[in-house]
Design a protein around this nucleic acid. Structure first.
Lengths: 377, 377
DNA sequence: ATCCCATCCGTAAACGTTTACAGCGGCGTG
DNA sequence: CACGCCGCTGTAAACGTTTACGGATGGGAT
């Protein structure tokens, strides 16, 4: 690990000035002979340009950060999987910040932009505080926010559409003849919690179904909490015939409880999850789930950011990603779910972002996604 | 996004030299009055030190890269989840490279170390070529490799122990009275494929069971391929009473096929997966799986790297992580699986790495892991 | 032969830090 | 009173690049 050669070393070896070395290495017009000498010296010495020095001079790092609560969350993971290859193709490296859902950490990341270790940031904050808004306004590098921001926040923004998403699910359940459709939510003081609660109300109204408090239970966005909440619901309202769950994990908890209670899914109770994570296809029965387009949101975000990195003065844009319903066995039964799968392919959220990406990438992504331990081929 | 203040700006404002500014900001002994003036100016101007310039001078970037085939692979994901918080606590940022299982890309990453944009690298290569060995020998920054390296590769190395892992599984199945234990593998020309095939043979021998070619099928490490392979097995050897699968995805495919064939799991056929990914606990019946310690390997790797970053001249170390068997319903049935779960907690691979980590982190990690869309709390 | 211009290259400054070194004033000591 | 020392600060160099500028060289036109 000896000190590597610099353009100075090369200049000495080639008997030219560092300016010539730099010119040659950057492909600026130079006399044939000089080019040869420099390239030869660089080759012999195994020269690799120092990206830090380059960054200092050029004021660009070719790095972009993605900040989210936790990379372990399948939703963010889907985003990263979209973001990474796009950045790579554009010549940027990806930096990851797991903020552990901590507001202070998020603000640190925003302030950290002043350190100029990245050219831009994609951030998916848990909740949007005043601090976020002012930190965003003062940010020293372009930021794209995934997750609805207030109007006029003056920042590129990618949004999901929980409202339409819930609506899709309830229409689907209604179409299957369900009328006692319960809603199992996460905490109401979270952005998605609030949005989904409102969406549920609206969707019921649109279907002319009554809003029944007994059919709403609030827990948290985890499997165990979901199970607990569903148990409470069943105890209170034994006649539910469908469960709308605010995310897939809650839905998995619901499946556990229903199984234990001897209720058949979907014959007795249909279950719909949300986010359409990888888990949905693995569950049994496989889980009908509302995709809020994690992958597409990731892709939209990275494209907004790259665009802004080229054109810093553009007006901020807001992109809203359309939800889709992934119909599986937990609502229509195993038999029919298979027909759906054949018809649409088991496209799912994971694959959908790949549409616009290169073929090679898509293939590799799917391979990687399913490959086992220690990496496989 | 105006040009930010530098120490020069501060120096002018405070009426001191840039050297004094630097000293104050780095906490070096300075006269009280000067300290006040500098801090005041820095505060007023909203100064943030430029990390690029700092890196150029200090020759440290405080960045570490992790290179693996695909972040979407749950095994690597588990590693990232361990690595990230440890790095963060040590003051390093994490950079992610998805190499798409491409050898050339991996070599590029190794060569890229010469650009000095990171202080160190954790790499989990798909297969180890001559090119890897020479690139590693020439690497311009410390590297830790996850995945078995040849003896004397002269690099810090973290290994799984497929042999013991398969052995654990087969002992378990044998103990349950199974004697026709088939093996569904991925491609034999991959490192894990080869290792696991050998391990299966050995384990059979140790149990005094005959090696029966009809009981071995090679497919690939994906769900659909696993399903196909298992179908072939069933067609050929209808009397199998257990399936050892070379990863969890193959095992999920096996569950699909068995269900369709009307074979009960585990009553008729017991199934064991490998890697103990998050999917194992979601499957139905929940999947007994051999944990090769993805999280623990990630943790070991990052600790080796941090250690080496402090002490570059240490002898290379090899760490081998012990496998564990996560017993679930696919071998012992639903009832008994629940008892196991209560006894050990649903610890699983995901949580295991957290042992040594701070409480706050662990809590946040679990929360994040299960939180839903748009980040929650 | 003179002048001009084009071509190529080297010198030096700049990016924003850290830090070795030297200078300066004040104080205690001989 | 001279000296030395100490505490503090400023100047300048260095990290490894890129690039503005100007100098040198040579060729062609006048």
């Amino acid at each position: 690990m000896a000190e590597g050669p610099t353009i100075n070393t090369i200049a000495r070896h080639a008997g030219v000035s560092i300016a010539s070395v730099s010119r040659v290495l950057n492909g600026l017009p130079t006399r044939e002979e000089t080019v040869r000498r420099v390239l030869r010296a660089a080759e012999e010495l195994g020269y690799v340009p120092n990206s830090v020095a380059r960054s200092l001079k050029s004021r660009r790092t070719n790095q972009v950060a993605f900040a989210m609560a936790d990379i372990g969350n399948p939703v963010y993971l889907a985003m990263v999987r979209e973001i990474q290859p796009v950045l790579r193709a554009a010549g940027y490296r990806l930096l990851l910040h797991s903020t552990d859902a901590d507001v202070a950490d998020e603000l640190d990341v925003l302030r950290g932009l002043g350190e100029r270790y990245v050219d831009g940031l994609i951030m998916s904050p848990l909740r949007v505080t005043e601090g976020h808004l002012s930190a965003l306004a003062a940010a020293r590098a372009p930021v794209v926010v995934i997750g609805s921001m207030p109007e006029g926040a003056g920042v590129d923004n990618v949004r999901a559409d929980s409202r339409t998403g819930v609506r899709l699910a309830l229409d689907h359940l209604y179409g299957l003849g369900r009328r006692r459709i319960a809603f199992v939510n996460g905490p109401a003081d979270t952005v998605p919690g609030a949005a989904r609660a409102a969406a549920y109300r609206e969707a019921l109204e649109a279907l002319d179904l009554p809003y029944d408090e007994d059919l709403v239970e609030v827990g948290d966005f985890y499997r165990a909490e979901g199970a607990r909440a569903v148990q409470a619901l069943l105890d209170r309202a034994g006649d539910v015939d469908a469960l709308m769950c605010a995310n897939d994990l809650i839905a998995l908890g619901a499946l556990d409880v229903l199984r234990r209670a001897g209720r058949r899914v979907p014959e007795d109770v249909a279950v719909v999850g949300m986010d359409d994570t990888d888990l949905a296809a693995v569950a049994w029965p496989s889980l009908t789930s509302v995709s809020l387009g994690s992958a597409r949101r990731g892709r939209a975000a990275v494209e907004l950011l790259l665009d802004r990195l080229e054109n810093g003065e553009r007006e901020p844009r807001v992109v809203t990603v359309e939800p889709r319903l992934a119909v599986r066995a937990s609502t229509v039964g195993v038999r029919e779910a298979e027909e759906y799968a054949e018809e649409y392919g088991e496209a799912g959220e994971a694959a959908e972002g790949g549409e616009a990406a290169g073929d090679a990438r898509k293939g590799a992504q799917q391979a990687g996604r399913t490959a086992g331990e220690e990496g496989i081929r």
